[in-house]
Amino acid sequence: MDVNYRQSVAMLRTRSQWIALGVLLAFLAVAGRVFPSEIVDVMNMMFILIVAAHGLNILTGYCGQISVGHAAFKGTGAYTAAMLIVRLGWNHWVALPVAALAAGGAGVAFGLPAFRVGGFYLAMSTLAAQFILPALFLFAMPGIVGGISGITVPRPAIGDFSFRIPENQYYLFMPMCVVMTIVARNIARSRTGRAFVAVRDNEPAATIMGINPFGYKLRAFFIGCLFAGVAGWMRVVYDGCVRPDIYPLMGSIWMLGIIIIGGMGTTIGPIFGVILVRALNEMVLMLSPFIGGFFRPEIAIQMGAGLGLIVFAVVVIVFLVFEPRGLAHLWQVFNERMRHWPFKYEPG
């Protein structure tokens, strides 16, 4: 029972929620050591994607500003980090906030058209980011930016603990993902997050409450791309390099798909979305040699790869049609069912 307002606005309100959190954190704490390296590697990739997806979720899910340039903003963070570390010899940890701010700044620059346009038109202008930024990675000053071959970046280390192997990277990415998830939730439930939703749901009504819609759209671009920048830095540690082809348009589309499947405008949504999409992806990778076996050998590989994209597309369409509120809503309904069990629950 809530006995005061502070408890009522708390993230975790019941004993069972605290126990669930404890179990989850205990699992996360040991998972990096008990699972085989390949699975830990997949989990690392999930952590990176979750951080990026939180960013896009704040921008698109909470504030309603569509962006099809999220991979490019992630790339901006990654390239900023790589250049600072390799060209200027900066420390990895100092490069992290600067990379995040650089991505946030790029986001604000490409978010400026949101002053006048929304929906499709804003999608077009963020699409411009997706073409301009990777073109810069590829063609601008190859001596510094690295051109087609990119930049090889050494992995960071804390004392003897080097983040070279997945098992060790896990203990960097996992805590970062947890912290960024908490940050995302905090923004969503405080004044800024409510203003984002107000702008998304009803712009005139947001305005009359003293919210400057344009200011908040730019804030959403800044925060969303800041998350992308952090994810970009993580990706540099993960890959040990930056290359222009790591941040393609498809990456941005995947991101949108992830938050649609997971449930836009909820903090749990991006996490569900990433887990489902990556799990599907891994499943397809495992199945594709088997499916490839049905075809002639010369097209087997292409069929396997194409299948992944088809599965992704089908899942997104199924969710858009049957559950536009995503896995997060299914989760909510499930929770309510459990709360009312054994009585019947009618979703309101």
């Binding site: 940050v183 905090n186 923004i187 405080s190 004044r191 800024t192 107000a198 409450m209 003293g210 919210i211």
Partner: peptide, 13 residues
């Protein structure tokens, strides 16, 4: 909204 003071940073923390 106009009576609350917390911005992005204090909101994130």
């Amino acid at each position: 909204h106009i009576h609350l003071k917390s911005g992005m940073v204090s909101g994130a923390i």
